[in-house]
Design a protein around this nucleic acid. Structure first.
Lengths: 187, 187
DNA sequence: GTCTATACGCAGATAGAC
DNA sequence: GTCTATCTGCGTATAGAC
């Protein structure tokens, strides 16, 4: 197992804090304390706190898709892949103790005054929707369905609704609800 | 027209700033500057910034339900009232330039370290769901539908998904999508 | 490359004059 | 009740020794 480099450790620590406490509530001093480095080292690796924020967003995006790919590695049926997506989001919520979607969270906090963050989140969600569209289209070809894009939009919105609702409630029932609904949408 | 009192003006100014900029990004100094008062006056009316936050949440909750009641004052059909709820959320998003749901936003920002804020948001969303449940039940009685609670949950999750999606996208198309879906759910 | 020391500003909050 | 002046602490970021 390769030794974790300083830069990676900084990103990992900062990511956890940004996610759990919020970006504005996380100070540079806390990051360097928990990463066990001096402030000079941090600014040697990153030019500003905002620079660190960009690294955080990129890391989370890559991790999100990697995690999903892993979770469907043994599945070939597109309908099952869509249902696995719901399970994946549910699992992420449980693992984070319902801390919510990284991208919705950061946009809620600083999206207004930070166009690059806002644009990043928009693109990320667009990729998620594309993923669902592709799977729905695959399924539709087999099942002779038309208008799979509308079904994909419906599924996407249900998942987003379930994620925010589970974040507010700190419960997973919304995922169980949408899983039933989605099964009904894909006969 | 009655003169706006100082306390009301403080809450109004703070609410706008909390909503647009975020709570942590809004300083006391900015609030007093835009409200045209001295800092001593603010602390005469509110014991802390957190106290002001509570007033903000209460005001937004009252305003939300008042606004909805106004928008359905001429409607009696429960199905139309449900569709009007979608129009209402769409209108709020447009009026705020897609600043999002007040409660999702504040929980995203400071929910983790502030249980009272988190609890307030949970209750608020529960009230919204109750509203939808009641309307769905009314509709179901007329239309001889069973399991109107499941339909209500479905509608609730679609609306939440549409709100967050429109906040990220800065577009209203998600509302148009769910309006069609909901019309299909209520035959 | 990593460290310590420090600059500089703004945060929330308080004291006391009027 | 509203004002001005001020306290204390933490925020981000930089300078310069090693």
């Amino acid at each position: 197992m390769k030794k974790e480099k300083v830069r990676e450790r900084i990103i990992r620590v900062a990511s956890e804090l940004f996610y759990k406490q919020g970006y504005n509530s996380t100070g540079i001093n806390q990051i360097i304390a928990e990463a066990n480095i001096a402030i000079g080292s941090l600014y040697n690796h990153f030019s500003s706190k905002n620079d660190l924020l960009q690294a955080y967003l990129i890391k989370e995006e890559l991790g999100w898709f990697e995690g999903y790919e892993n979770s469907i590695s043994t599945i070939s049926d597109p309908k099952e892949k869509l249902l696995a997506l719901i399970d994946y989001r549910k699992k992420l919520q449980q693992a984070s103790k319902f801390a919510g979607c990284h991208f919705i969270k950061i946009v809620s906090e600083i999206g207004e005054g930070n166009p690059s963050v806002s644009a990043f989140a928009t693109q990320h969600k667009e990729k998620q929707k594309d993923l669902i569209r592709t799977l729905a289209h695959e399924y539709g070809t087999e099942a002779k369905l038309t208008d799979t894009d509308s079904i994909a939009d419906h599924i996407f919105l249900l998942i987003e609704g379930a994620v925010v609702t589970s974040t507010i409630n700190k419960q997973t029932d919304s995922f169980d609800q949408i899983k039933k609904i989605v099964q009904g949408l894909l006969p």
